[in-house]
Amino acid sequence: MKTVNFTEMKDGTKEEYLMLDKHEQNYINGTADRILKFMGGLNATLEGYKITRLEHSLQTATRAFKDKANEEMVVAALLHDIGDELAPLNHSEYAASVLKPYVSNKTHWIVEKHGEFQMYYYAHHLGKNKNQRDKYKDHPYYQDALNFCEKWDQASFDPDYKNMSLEDFTPMVKKIFSRKPYSLL
């Protein structure tokens, strides 16, 4: 495989960067496959839950799908907790960052803020502010984030729920991640 000659980026030539850009585009095109592979590995759970992280994600996405949410939102529901593994203290922002180039501002905002909105269901049991989400009451997507959490996310910890499979969502994930990034539109 051809490689660049430089050892410092400032010394790279146009030809080298064009060659690297081609490789980068090929890598970007494989994002959906890498995400699906990662999702398939979420078979462990945080101790104490009745289901795995994968099952929670599949349940959340299945509920969104059954509610006739658009494909972008179904994929966001599937991936909303993708940051749990590597960024447990800011998992919402992590997931939103993965989705950001491919989804609307609305979907990005909902995923980014869902962690704070979810606090409504449990924070008071831990001596924290369950109404953390109220600071966003005047935001245009406030009600959408509220609905995301109430109808899909917080309700998706049921070991008896019949969710769709990761394979069922694969075409949607591939479609969303094959879009031209919003930043380039």
Score class of each variant (00 low, 15 high):
Ala77Ser: 15
Ala77Glu: 02
Leu78Trp: 02
Asp81Asn: 15
Asp81His: 10
Ile82Asp: 07
Ile82Asn: 04
Ile82Tyr: 04
Ile82Phe: 11
Gly83Pro: 04
Asp84Lys: 06
Ala87Lys: 04
Ala87Ile: 01
Pro88Gln: 14
Pro88Tyr: 13
Leu89Arg: 08
Leu89Asn: 14
Ser92Gln: 08
Ser92His: 07
Glu93Asp: 12
Tyr94Pro: 00
Ala95Pro: 05
Ala96Gly: 12
Ala96Lys: 06
Ala96Trp: 05
Ser97Asp: 14
Val98Gly: 08
Val98Asp: 08
Pro101Arg: 06
Tyr102Cys: 09
Val103Glu: 00
Ser104Glu: 05
Asn105Trp: 02
Thr107Met: 06
His108Trp: 10
Trp109Ile: 03
Lys113Gln: 14
Lys113Glu: 03
Gly115Met: 07
Glu116Asn: 07
Glu116Phe: 02
Gln118Lys: 07
Met119Tyr: 03
Tyr120Arg: 15
Tyr120Glu: 14
Tyr120Val: 06
Tyr120Ala: 14
Tyr121Ser: 13
Tyr122Pro: 05
Tyr122Asn: 12
Tyr122Lys: 10
Ala123Asn: 14
His124Leu: 09
His125Ser: 09
His125Asp: 11
Leu126Val: 07
Leu126Ser: 12
Lys128Pro: 01
Asn129Thr: 06
Asp134Asn: 12
Lys135Pro: 00
Lys135Ala: 10
Tyr136Gln: 02
Lys137Thr: 04
Lys137Asp: 08
Lys137Leu: 10
Asp138Ala: 13
His139Gly: 08
Tyr142Met: 02
Asp144Pro: 01
Asp144Asn: 10
Ala145Thr: 15
Ala145Ser: 14
Ala145Tyr: 02
Asn147Trp: 03
Phe148Thr: 07
Glu150Ser: 10
Lys151Met: 11
Asp153Thr: 00
Asp153His: 01
Gln154Met: 09
Phe157Glu: 01
Phe157Ser: 03
Asp158Gly: 06
Pro159Thr: 03
Pro159Glu: 11
Asp160Met: 10
Tyr161Thr: 05
Met164Asp: 09
Met164Glu: 13
Ser165Arg: 07
Leu166Cys: 13
Glu167Gly: 08
Glu167Trp: 00
Glu167Lys: 14
Asp168Ile: 00
Thr170Gly: 03
Val173Cys: 11
Lys174Val: 04
Ile176Ser: 05
Ile176His: 04
Phe177Glu: 10
